[in-house]
Amino acid sequence: MGAVVERGGMDTLTPTAVIEHAPAGRGARPLRAAGRLLAVRTAIAVPLTVALSAAIFAVASLSPFDPLAAYLGSNYQFATPAQRDAMRAAYGTDQSWYAAWWQWLGGLARGDLGWSSTQSQPVSTVLAERLPFTLALSGAALLTATVLAIVLGCLAGMRRGGVLDRALTGLSVAFAAVPPFVVSLALVVVVAVGLRWLPASGAAAPGADYTVAGVLRYGILPWLALTVSMIPWLLLTTRAAVVASIDSDAVRGARARGVHGWALLRGHIAPVSVLPTLALLGTRLPELIAGAAIVETVFGWPGMAAVLVDSAAALDFPLLAALTVAAAAAVLAGSALSDAAAVAIDPRIRMAG
């Protein structure tokens, strides 16, 4: 059952106990409360993830596509019914969805994620080869966007109505309406094709091995595209929180005591203003995952986007389930961590229930 996380007027539906403002000196200590929150959310996330994995198998089984068409390619139309039945038995596509799910779940409990028919290798190998590229790209973009959004949002909020505030707000509103693939294509056309400053796709030159320097160079454009697509909402949220904090009684009292400038921002405004940004990070992780998939596709980045599309089209159940469950676990973990960080940062909120 969903509950409410109350953070300075921003209510977010979360599957956990209520987090509410508590009087000073009451409630568990912040770190202990954050640990309790993580324990509750983990207890909820485990059965939820298991149910989601079953739903993936059930929904995929309703697909009108025949996975043999993807496996056999142009030979599919020439295969006899007996050959198709033998292929279905070999690939395990003749099973019911619940039998396939139970078999996959049992293998997962033993540490075996199964065999990917689309990649012709174990699912664990696919994840080991491609997941680091996706995590590196998404993590770098998330970190950069968060830092820039908090810094610029604080500057805009502190100078409300000024030139900087109007410029940053206008740019944020404009870029919030631009899909990630448009930003990606614009970077390709201008930077890669027009100026020829950076490569347009891949993570290494054709036929070359991956190197740290090469991956960093090839990753600049997808990193920029994903970062730009994430900044607007984070910046606008931080700015709004700063503006609200400036008008609060606590900040007015600090100013009356002679606290101004950097000291006021660091000690009284930023600690409260960062909480809505943390909440937004937790709720917009699905958008980050979707944006990363789009950006990876445009730039040919060797992450999980391409294999996700292939596994969905060919009903590669083991790989599709592993990718979907991993994405869901990332979203649940991110939401829990953002709430736990809010509890640890702000001693005025506590766990209840």
Rank of each mutant, 00 (worst) to 15 (best):
A167F: 12
L216G: 08
V251C: 12
E296R: 04
A167W: 11
G214Q: 13
R217L: 15
G207W: 07
R257Y: 06
D247H: 12
I220H: 02
W301Q: 06
A306H: 12
A205W: 05
A263F: 00
S184D: 01
L221W: 02
H260M: 06
M230H: 05
I294Y: 08
L265R: 14
P199F: 11
E287R: 09
R166W: 05
T211F: 03
L187Y: 00
L171W: 07
A177N: 05
I289Q: 10
G219K: 04
A305Q: 11
V182L: 13
S172N: 10
L275I: 15
D209L: 12
D249W: 04
V212H: 01
M304D: 01
V183W: 00
P199G: 11
S201T: 14
L171Y: 02
P286Q: 10
V173I: 15
S273V: 06
W301C: 02
W301V: 09
S273M: 06
R266L: 15
M304H: 01
V189Q: 06
P276E: 03
A192V: 07
W223I: 00
A200V: 01
S172W: 03
R252T: 11
G261Q: 06
A306R: 14
I231V: 15
D209A: 15
G202M: 05
I231P: 02
V251E: 12
A200S: 13
V295G: 10
G261A: 13
P276S: 04
A290S: 13
G214Y: 07
G219V: 03
V259I: 15
V191H: 00
V183I: 14
V212F: 13
V298I: 15
H268M: 08
Y218A: 07
G282I: 03
T169I: 11
A204L: 03
G214D: 13
L187F: 01
L168P: 06
S184R: 02
L280N: 04
S273T: 13
L285N: 00
L168S: 10
H260C: 01
G202Y: 06
A225L: 04
W262R: 14
T238E: 14
T237D: 04
I220L: 15
L221K: 01
G291E: 08
P302Q: 07
A174K: 00
T237H: 02
A305C: 08
G194F: 09
A167D: 00
A200P: 05
P206G: 08
L285D: 00
V193M: 06
Y210T: 06
I289W: 05
A176T: 01
G170S: 08
L285S: 05
R196K: 12
M304L: 15
G219I: 10
A203V: 08
A192C: 05
Y210G: 04
G170T: 08
A279W: 03
L280Q: 14
A240Q: 03
Y210R: 09
G214S: 15
H260N: 08
L226T: 02
L264W: 08
S201H: 08
L198S: 05
V251H: 10
T227C: 03
L187Q: 02
L281F: 07
V272C: 11
F181V: 13
A186H: 00
V274Y: 10
L280R: 04
A254M: 14
I289C: 03
G261L: 07
H268I: 07
S172K: 01
Y210P: 08
G207E: 11
V190S: 09
L264P: 10
Y218V: 06
W233Y: 11
V178L: 13
L235P: 02
A305Y: 09
D249E: 14
V189N: 00
L288W: 05
A292I: 01
V190M: 10
L264R: 09
